[in-house]
Write a protein that binds this DNA or RNA. Sequence first.
DNA 1: TAAGCTCTTGACAACGTTGTCTGCCCCCTC
DNA 2: GAGGGGGCAGACAACGTTGTCAAGAGCTTA
Lengths: 324, 324
Amino acid sequence: MKDVASAAGVALKTVSRVVNGEPGVHPATAERVRTAIDRLGYSRNESARVLRRGRTATIGLVIEDVADPFYAGLSRAVEDVVIDHGCLLLSGSSGEEPGRERELVETFFARRVDGLIMVPAGDDHTYLRPELENGTPVVFADRPPGAGIDVDTVLADNVGGARQAVRHLLTHGHRRIAFLGDDPAIFTAAQRLRGYREELGGLYDERLVSMRPPASASAREDLARMFALDDPPTALFTGNGRHTVTTLRALEGRRVALVGFDDFELADLLTPGVSVVAQDPSWMGRVAAELLFRRLRGDGGPSEHIELPVRLIPRGSGELPPPD
Amino acid sequence: MKDVASAAGVALKTVSRVVNGEPGVHPATAERVRTAIDRLGYSRNESARVLRRGRTATIGLVIEDVADPFYAGLSRAVEDVVIDHGCLLLSGSSGEEPGRERELVETFFARRVDGLIMVPAGDDHTYLRPELENGTPVVFADRPPGAGIDVDTVLADNVGGARQAVRHLLTHGHRRIAFLGDDPAIFTAAQRLRGYREELGGLYDERLVSMRPPASASAREDLARMFALDDPPTALFTGNGRHTVTTLRALEGRRVALVGFDDFELADLLTPGVSVVAQDPSWMGRVAAELLFRRLRGDGGPSEHIELPVRLIPRGSGELPPPD
DNA sequence: TAAGCTCTTGACAACGTTGTCTGCCCCCTC
DNA sequence: GAGGGGGCAGACAACGTTGTCAAGAGCTTA
């Protein structure tokens, strides 16, 4: 900038004004400055700008894994909103490890992100407190924060969705409905188990419940054990997209009714088509990002807790009747 | 930092030394400083640090769309390498628009990213030249840069993969093999068309070639037109994951041999399983990122052009014989 | 004609770090 | 006891911007 200034024969401040489109510069001078800028290939140093102005125009996003289609969709939606607001996105995957979640968040804060959207991996977020008191807005998506932290949240209707799935299977005549989900330490897994249990009522049988990491040997063993029972399940409710896929694979063509939580590409092309309770990751991302920018514009109201509806999509697998 | 210094009764520089783990500070003093840091909840301002030191410990990544599983996988791999090197990732999706690609890149450079990995959308990258001359390393992944730009590239063996796919179909007795791919303005689409054409030799028939955006009406029309021919195709080669999926959907159960470029989740669960030529997006991401960090460590050798092999995975659809 | 106003420009400090240089104290050695 | 060296600490400038304030030129108005 200094070089540009001397090349154009003006003061530093005038260049700054031109670069920022501030008024009060004579058109001819501005033109001279712009020519010098082009000639020297100058580009403003954002670090210095940030240092001086205190705002970074950067948003942080912590998710579990970009390679998971659900989070990829959420990520893309957040990115679009962020770019529309003239900001940039710093993102990182926690890999479901609380330690890495915290490291990422702290690195983001050290870089002075203006706001943060996160899908938490851990359940203790008291470490956010100093920064929250500092005024940095944080929005939790998909899962709520641990105890004692009061922030905006955007969650799906996990309980309602699970109830819908189970009700659908009950309507089609099933009485032995198994649940295959993730570790209940994960919020969404616990909520979906809760919905499953509530809707099943007296039909609940804990021998039909498996809560394991997807694609694990233990998950496969649980499934085999269930089918070895005297009264095996005639229908399955899988607790997330990953479990749906690994369960389908483990079934090896065995025809059992199935409803999965989370939609996934190609669910319609399998035979039978896979019925699912669909969330909309883009919607969640957009809502979370817009809420964040509303906070950044100064909305200081009490924290909001948005619950997005989910939708049952019948495609065949959930409508299979129980064997006679 | 100033506050920490006065709280601990030391000079600014001493705090700086402690924060950076520099030697030459008395243990007792360091301890006092650390206590003050904890008490005040101080965290270093990275912007100021960057301004002073000139390196941002930030890498930029421009891809086409995070929500596409291929790029999501690539993205995750890049992220892992970047984090391992103590850096952070700024990422953005170009959405296949050259304008947005350029905007993203320029924003990244304004933020003084230390290096850049990009999947280009446009074919003119002369705008990179000033920054390249400045010494910022750039690695192109998946697609090469436009003319006149000499940088490292990491590409898949697109021609070889297409030839493999076509050869596989020929081996299974097909002579009428159609190609359904993207606009040949996209490098990978053009390369795969080339491989297809080379391998087909005299069997090439331009009426069996469609190059359209996936999931477009025109793509569906082209497919219908091909099947209406007197000598319709008995096998299809689809030019990327998205085309494979939309083609499968358009086929509506019609049994035609098919090999797709790009692997995708659930390809094995469809009936028949979908044979594909698989690339490894994580591998590509990792290789690109490691190459970038090698450059950052000062490797100034001539630009490298890495071609990653691809692999044919037979799953059933590519082994269907032609109808008699 | 002097005062006042607008328009344009510039000088300067400050943002929070870190690199360089200097200074002090204490201990060791001759 | 004097000189030298190492360990520790601090003063100061600089990184590249932008906000604040002030000043000069040219014009209008009383």
